[in-house]
Design a protein around this nucleic acid. Structure first.
Lengths: 132, 132
DNA sequence: TTACTAAAGGATAATAATTATCCTTTAAGA
DNA sequence: TCTTAAAGGATAATTATTATCCTTTAGTAA
């Protein structure tokens, strides 16, 4: 993926730190601030935690990345993508995407509620195939 | 509702402060820490913020209340109840429960994922009937 | 290329949010 | 009543996040 272009599309400068952050987010899938700081320091020995926060905020505000709030644990961040739900294993902590017909779910809920819906946050938790 | 008994069932003492918190949670439906502190102070002039946090934690740990994490805003707390989803109006901020066949959704997702699921966090956002 | 400038980085102070501590008070049961 | 573990209040400590200020650099244009 060309993160330099992606940053530019979101009117953000493509700095080495940001490319590093996006790369880590990509390889990890979902990552918390703490994990991110831990890992990014390996590449950028003197990176400031403030820089990390500023970048997370800048990229969130421009919707390049998304914060995923999870019950009973710290938020994780992911590169923005098409609508999807998440699966969490309460035992091993595996956290991953699952695609699901969210449009249908939205249509159903709109009918029931009279709301005009445009987004969802949907997290399932339980035990993964290995842990169950 | 008999909150005194409810607290006892969760092995917690039924203090006036806790009864006040639960009462506010009930009348508000969902309430943030800040709103709660704001309101509870009217009844308990000298209540400490630490007491509020301690009680929120104690009642969360015993699953008497539930924290609802919402994208882009502060958490709200509600008295625990049967599985349900939430609707958020991005314009006026209305936040309410909606009942939905979550069991069915879980069964569907289990089939697709091989997970054994037992819980969900599901929030829809958009515009309410008035705001749309 | 070089030069310019707004944006971004780093260090650190400030603020906000949450938790811990310590001592006093009280709910609940004997 | 009496006893005591649990809870409350005040406040300190810790953690998380944001703001500030000065330096560096990415991006653009001469």
């Amino acid at each position: 993926m060309n993160y330099e272009a992606l940053l530019h599309e979101h009117t953000l400068k493509a700095t080495p730190q940001r490319l590093g952050i996006l790369s880590l987010m990509h390889t990890n899938g979902h990552i918390s601030i703490d994990e991110l700081f831990e890992q990014i320091k390996k590449q950028f020995h003197s990176i400031s935690l403030a820089t990390l926060y500023k970048n997370i905020n800048a990229m969130s505000e421009t919707a390049l990345i998304t914060e995923v709030k999870i019950p009973n644990m710290k938020s994780k961040y992911e590169i923005a993508k098409e609508r999807h739900a998440h699966l969490l294993c309460d035992k091993c902590g595996e956290f991953k995407d699952i695609s699901l017909d969210i449009d249908k779910l939205i249509r159903l809920t709109e009918a029931k509620s009279k709301y005009k819906l445009n987004d969802t946050s949907l997290i399932f938790s339980g035990l993964c195939e290995k842990c169950k």
